[in-house]
């Protein structure tokens, strides 16, 4: 049974206008997407800015209002509890944010930041709480002496690790990681990615890993969802997407990854030119007359593509 199951999720934002600020139309940020996350699995959600990938993640944890659709956790329909306190869902699903600078309260010590989820859900004595915080800090490679410091005393990578310690404090089963390493330098990014892999094994965690960085996603995820204009254009395993991209948008995305081999730079420039040409000629085939992405259709056991019937 899937750990998290999302069915026909829609998140629409109204466009207000006219003299009475009537709702004229909607921005279909997330337009009917469905997917499952199995226990312990890492699912990558990939797209450009504005594709609706972050809104999908935020809707799952209740930070964006769901317009329609159904979310089940552990087989139980929890759509109406999303975003409500004290539910077991709130403990089971946590979030790591992109910007570790603005997601940590600058006036609170690390001890209070990391203990906050514990205080919300568990009754612990001061000593127990301190012991749990020290454990959590150790998991993300920070010593207990850091508990009494404030966020500004840490570097970007360390701050992101504090965010991770907070997210794993309640031993969740699913973490929504929204661009967790985008703001970090390469060497620091490697460190955070390693910690994410490490705690995944330790806590048997599942991730929904939201990112625009196809290199990071390839390294982290076994299952990928490609999002474009609020819908999925393609889903599949790592090999399906990287070696056999089928939708014209996915092809363009994969071709855009800079090749780390300097000898191939002319090849990759030529390949991109060819694929952009293909995109122009084939785009009417891959989108319906309103520019909407078609429904996904299975092309193999693991691989589905949004193509017309």
């Amino acid at each position: 049974m899937a750990l998290l199951s999302v069915e026909d999720l829609k998140v629409y934002f109204p466009i207000k206008g006219g003299i009475f600020a009537r709702t004229l139309d909607y921005v279909r940020a997330v337009d009917s997407v469905s997917f499952d996350i199995e226990p312990g699995q890492t699912v990558g959600l990939i797209g450009e800015s504005g594709s609706g990938k972050s809104t999908t993640g935020r809707a799952i944890v209740g930070l964006s209002k769901i317009t329609a659709g159904k979310i089940s956790f552990d087989g139980e329909d929890i759509t109406k509890y999303v975003g409500k306190n004290r539910s077991s869902y709130r403990r089971g699903v946590q979030m790591i944010f992109q910007d570790a600078y603005s997601s940590l309260d600058p006036k609170r010590r690390v001890l209070d930041l990391v203990a906050e989820p514990l205080r919300n859900f568990e009754k612990l004595t001061k000593a127990e709480e301190r012991r749990r915080v020290d454990e959590l800090l150790e998991i993300v490679g920070l010593g207990p002496e850091n508990a009494i410091k404030y966020p500004h005393e840490f570097s970007g990578g360390q701050r992101q690790r504090i965010g991770i310690a907070r997210a794993v404090a309640l031993k969740p089963r699913l973490i929504i990681a929204d661009e967790p390493v985008s703001a970090l330098d390469l060497s620091v990014q490697a460190q955070v990615l390693n910690y994410l892999k490490h705690i995944q094994q330790e806590f048997k965690l599942a991730y929904l890993f939201i990112s625009h960085d196809l290199g990071v996603v390839k390294y982290m995820c076994d299952h990928l969802l490609i999002m474009h204009r609020g819908r999925f254009v393609e889903r599949g395993g790592r090999a399906d997407i990287y070696e056999n991209p089928t939708h014209i948008y996915t092809k363009q995305l994969i071709a855009a990854i800079p090749d780390p081999d300097p000898e191939k730079k002319d090849d990759s420039m030529a390949r991109r030119a060819r694929i952009n040409q293909e995109y122009e000629t084939l785009k009417t085939m891959h989108y319906d007359p309103n520019g909407r992405v078609y429904d996904l259709r299975a092309v193999s056991d693991t691989h589905s593509v949004a193509l017309p019937e």
Binding site: L186, Q191, Y219, R238
Partner: peptide
């Protein structure tokens, strides 16, 4: 060498850990 070893685009099988440069 450390920088190249910590680049996930170059180590993309998903196996093994990325190289981390100690300290800051």
């Amino acid at each position: 060498r450390s920088l190249l070893a910590s680049n996930p685009s170059l180590e993309s099988t998903g196996e093994g850990l990325l190289h981390v440069i100690k300290g800051m």
